[in-house]
């Protein structure tokens, strides 16, 4: 089907370059890496990578890493579940005027997780070998909404068109980036155990760790938890170990990152300290 992002255009042409964004005189930067000083550039659609198409269906695979049990959920734009309309009158929000239409995949995903015996309390979800927020992307697919209740609601045939488009767009990004549609679940320790584990791992090498709420470090600009490696007295910051929306995911990511990279980080910190000591002499 046609890509929901570029509507089949494939390439976005003559976009204003970042080097003139916000400038009053709109003078391009002569050595600009993006536009070579022209002030405009062309960019292939990031969702379909310039193909102009999205897949018609997706086969999502969920694996319990401990038991090897698997569940498969198929999202097919030609075989969609019936749309569900939620009305403001049934909502807990004070504004009762909105309506929204969604494809009820949330329950289908929850059933798949239950089938292979995984839950947020007992497992971390992994995508491409990295822990990610549990349930990320695995809820109802929103098709349309009428938040203010002022506009006319979409007609049934329009809703069907939007539903196909939303389903086609649902995992297009991962597919265009060459990502497998496989999510793995690994059993987890409690947060208290993870906090202790990381402390043991870093303190044995003379460091400690620090949590901060970071803004803008996550690509979409929202805030999340940043986990940093700092000196034992917390006066020097050495490395970012992880950043994630969820505290637990940041912690688990930090543990795995440190485990894989501690030798390199340790060398870098020692080198930096030696340089600082030289400068002070």
């Amino acid at each position: 089907m046609v890509c929901a992002n570029c509507k089949g255009k494939k390439i976005f042409k003559n976009l204003e370059c970042w080097c003139i964004a916000g400038k009053e005189d709109k003078t391009p930067f002569a050595d600009c890496k993006m536009c070579s000083g022209k002030g405009k550039y062309n960019s292939a659609c990031p969702q379909c990578k310039g193909s102009g198409k999205s897949p018609d269906s997706y086969e999502l695979i969920f694996i319990n890493a401990d038991t090897k049990k698997q569940a498969v959920v198929v999202i097919g734009s030609n075989n969609l579940p019936a749309l569900v309309m939620t009305e403001g009158q049934n909502s807990s929000y004070p504004d009762k005027t909105w309506r929204n239409w969604s494809l009820p995949y949330g329950d289908i995903f929850r059933n798949a997780f239950a089938e292979i015996g995984v839950s947020e309390a007992t497992h971390f979800m992994y995508y491409r070998n990295s822990p990610i927020e549990f349930g990320w992307s695995f809820s109802d697919i929103v098709v349309a909404d009428n938040r203010m209740g002022w506009d006319e609601d979409p007609k049934p045939e329009e809703l069907q068109r939007l539903a196909k488009r939303a389903a086609g767009a649902s995992f297009a990004w991962q597919v265009s980036q060459g990502g497998p549609l496989i999510w793995e679940f690994r059993s987890r320790q409690t947060t208290e155990e993870l906090l202790e584990k990381l402390y043991q791992m870093v303190s044995v090498r003379g460091y400690t760790y620090q949590f901060e709420v970071t803004e803008g470090n996550i690509a979409t600009g929202e805030s999340g938890w940043g986990l940093w490696l700092v000196s034992a007295d917390a006066k020097e910051t050495y490395a970012e170990l992880a950043v994630a929306y969820d505290f637990d995911v940041a912690l688990q990511s930090g543990i795995e990152y440190w485990d894989k990279n501690y030798k390199r980080i340790n060398r870098t910190v020692k080198k930096w300290k030696a340089e600082q000591a030289k400068k002070q002499k």
Partner: peptide
């Protein structure tokens, strides 16, 4: 941790000792 985040917003750090 989430309670601290919602009470104190940003510009803070929690250090393990």
């Amino acid at each position: 941790a989430d309670k601290i985040r919602s009470m104190c917003f940003t510009e803070f750090a929690i250090t393990r000792t």
